[in-house]
Amino acid sequence: MTEVKHSGSQRSWEYYLGRITVIIVLVLLALITLFPFIWMFVTALKSSSEVFKWPIVLFPANPQWGNFVEAWNRQPFTRFLQNTIFITIGTTLLTLFTSSTAGFAFAKYEFRGKRILFILILLLLMLPPQVTLVPTYLMVRSLGLVNSYFGLMIPGITSVFGVFLIRQYLQSIPNELIDAARIDGSNDWGIYLQIILPLLKPALAVLAIFTFTGSWNSFLWPLIIADSSTMYTLQVGIAFFSGQTGTEYQLMMAVAVVSMLPVILMYLMFQRYFVASVALSGMNY
C-alpha cells in the first residue's frame, strides 16, 4: 500500500486542506461523470416535445413514467431481454473456459511454438472489427449457425485479453502447488479443475465483468446474425427507436436505462475482486 500513514499528532491544517481539495475534485469529477447518465434518465421522463425544448427542460414538470411501459411494449423487449441474458451468460461461461485453459497452458507448460502462438493471439487483438465482419459472417453461415444462439455468441466465445490476463495471473502463482498435486497423483485436467480454477477466482471475476459487459452491449453482430426478430437482443431492439423520420429519444433512453441495470448489478457484485486481480496479473512482463 502506498498510503502514507500519519499519526494523529502530525496532522496539520495542510493535511486537512489537502484532503478537502481532493474530495472536492473527486466530487466534481464524479458529478461530471454521472451527468450523461442523469441526462439519460431525465430524457427518459420527458415528453417528446421536451427533449429539444429551449429554454432547456432540466427536469420535466410532469415526468412521463409511462414512457418506460410504452417503450418496453413497443417491441417484444421481454423476449429480447431473455435472449440477451441467455447469450450473455453463454458467452461469459464459454469465454471463462476457453481463456482459462489457454491461459493455463501458456503460464504453466513449455511446448513448441509457445512464443509464436502467443504473439499470434496478441496480433488478433489489434484487428479492426469492421473488416472481419463479413468473413466471420460467411464462416458462421457455412457452419450453419446463422440465427442460432450459438451463432450470436460466437465472436465473444474466447477473449485474447482474457488469455493474457489469466496467463499473467497464473505466472505469479508458484509452481509448487501444481507439483505437489501431481505427486499426489492428480492428472492435468484434475489440476486445472481442482487447483487452478479455484485460484483463478478473482481473475475470472474480472474477465466475467469484461465479457458480460461486452456481450451485453454488443450491437452490430447480433443485428446481422439474428435473422428473425425472435432472436434480437436488447441493443438491437433499442435501434428501432431511431427511424427515418425521427428518433424517439425518450423511449430509447427509457429502455437504455433499464438495459444498463443488469450490467451495473453484475459490476457491483464482482467489483471487490476487481483491483486486486488486475494488480496481480498486470505486472509481470
Binding site: 465482419l133 463479413v134 452490430l220 443485428l223 446481422i224 435473422d227 435501434a239 427511424g243
Partner: peptide, 14 residues
C-alpha cells in the same frame, strides 16, 4: 430498423 438496414441487408446478400 431503418438506421441499420443497409448494414444487415448487404451482409446477408453477400
Amino acid at each position: 430498423p431503418f438506421g441499420t438496414y443497409f448494414e444487415r441487408l448487404p451482409v446477408q446478400i453477400a
